[in-house]
Design a protein around this nucleic acid. Structure first.
Length: 428
RNA sequence: GGCCCGGUAGUACAGUUGGUUAGUACGCCAGCCUGUCACGCUGGAGGUCAGGGGUUCGAGCCCCCUCCGGGUCGCCA
């Protein structure tokens, strides 16, 4: 018999349902099971006297066990759960669950230890439905515009950016590193003449960051494209991409997100507002009295990020804010500079950085000079080689998928990831 | 890595000035209950008080060390 999903049950028909036992209740003459599958829940009602054959299973059945029930679905207004119940003819216990090691009150660390149990919840599942929708919309948008999806190596011979904060791994008789960004390979694709590419995949950072928004392994969404005229082309594409994707999310899951997480999905208006870093600091000081020593104004602080959300809402009625004109020494050596100013940006959404983007330096001699300034000459020689044999002007950005999910639902990074990895968390 | 806070049944917590047998809720087990739906009622099991050392007649409680976790900042996506 075909399995029926629990939101597809038609009263008056015979059904087979399979799922977890959410609750077992046994009163004098009756027993009730509430079953759950990925689509919904249904009550199974058993009149004990009429079905002595179920007695043994009912007695041993525990919450979160997995069962198959075949029987007849009937309408019954007495039942609070959708006015529907199944009167079983067969009951098969597929898997018996031991008592759960946690309950609703469990602390984060305990929940992480048994993450798969927590993920059984409808609310937790929703986050991954939303993430699937978001990433799918981003793919759709880019493929429509002739972008190729590529997959770059995560095992690499040398650190991809600074040389610090990479995980070292044993690679036969030598050392390798886990890719801390697909940056160099995205640009290699530009030198390969692919013109437009994106990639979504794991990113590894050996940083001992203890915040609610950092992980040592997370999913990045990276994109790079050629023949741009300035980094503003990159910003424009990203804004369009996000507006499109969030529109898909809002349409499909807006209500569910509001119901489960109490967060409203707002489809952003185009264009996204934009401000130079030093102007932002001026505004933050004028409006909120936030001050910082001049020497620290080349970069964003956490508090400035948070305040910039308030500023963007007040000034532009917008949740997003592009910030440009960072200090050159705070940005990667491969960002193109014009009059010493990096041709790149950060994108802040709801007070959290979700993206860094830039026009890249594609001129071999300039790139080598900028690398040398950081003392990276030899370390990045394999990379600068990409630009020796002709390379179009190009730019791109990297976006944190988990941070998107996190902000979309208002949870922390630990709750937004399938499995969190941090300095102190390597299991399960 | 800096600063702050914490670690007590399976889970979440309480534990008075250092004093006899370490409690509460949920969960678990057994029994009762003709339709429950946060069911209800009765009874029961369950503790290396993170680990080690010290002070004391006596330590869950005070001191030191170690481990683990949380918050926050820095770093970033």
């Amino acid at each position: 018999m075909e399995r029926t999903m629990m939101n597809q049950i038609i009263p008056g028909t015979g059904v087979k349902v399979q799922g977890f036992v959410e609750r077992v209740r046994s009163t004098g003459a009756m027993a009730f099971l509430v079953l759950r599958d990925r689509m919904g829940k249904v009550q199974v009602t058993i009149e004990k006297a009429a079905h002595p054959e179920f007695a043994e299973d009912l007695n041993r059945l525990t919450p979160e066990s997995v069962v198959t029930v075949e029987g007849r679905a009937v309408s019954n207004p007495q039942v609070r759960l959708n006015g529907l119940e199944i009167l079983p003819e067969r009951l098969t216990v597929e898997s018996l669950a031991a008592p759960l090691p946690l309950n609703k009150d469990a602390a984060v660390d305990t929940r992480m230890d048994y993450r798969w149990l927590e993920l059984r919840g409808e609310k937790e599942r929703l986050l991954f439905e939303v993430q699937t929708c978001l990433v799918n919309a981003m793919r759709e948008f880019l493929i429509e515009r002739d972008f190729l999806e590529i997959h770059t190596p995560k095992l690499i011979a040398a650190a991809s950016e600074s040389g610090a904060d990479v995980f070292e791994v044993k690679y036969f008789d030598r050392k390798a590193y886990l890719a801390q960004s697909p940056q160099f390979y995205k640009q290699m694709a530009m030198a390969a003449g692919f013109e437009r590419i994106f990639e979504t995949g794991p990113v590894f950072r050996a940083e001992k960051s203890f915040t609610n928004r950092h992980a040592t392994e997370f999913s990045g969404f990276d994109l790079e494209f050629s023949y741009i005229e300035s980094f503003e082309d990159v910003m424009r594409l990203e804004a369009e991409l996000l507006a499109y994707s969030l529109e898909q999310v809002a349409r499909t899951y807006g209500e569910a997100i509001e119901r489960q997480y109490g967060v409203n999905v707002i489809v952003p208006q185009l264009p996204f507002p934009q401000i130079a870093l030093k102007d932002l600091y001026t505004e933050l000081e004028r409006r909120y009295g936030y001050t910082l020593p001049e020497s620290e104004k080349g970069d964003m602080t956490t508090e400035a990020e948070q305040l910039s959300y308030r500023f963007s809402k007040e000034e532009f009625g917008h949740e997003f804010l592009f910030i440009t004109d960072f200090a050159a020494e705070k940005r990667a050596f491969y960002h193109m500079r014009k009059n010493g100013v990096p041709q790149g940006y950060d994108l802040i959404w709801r007070g959290v950085e979700i993206t860094t983007g830039a026009q890249r330096e594609h001129r071999y001699d300039v790139l080598c000079r900028q690398a040398d300034e950081r003392g990276l000459g030899e370390d990045v020689k394999f990379y600068t080689e990409f630009f020796r044999y002709g390379c179009p002007p190009h730019g791109g950005f990297g976006l944190g998928i988990d941070r998107m999910s996190m902000l979309l639902t208002g949870v922390t990074i630990k709750d937004a990831m399938f499995l969190f990895r941090g300095p102190n968390r390597l299991t399960p």
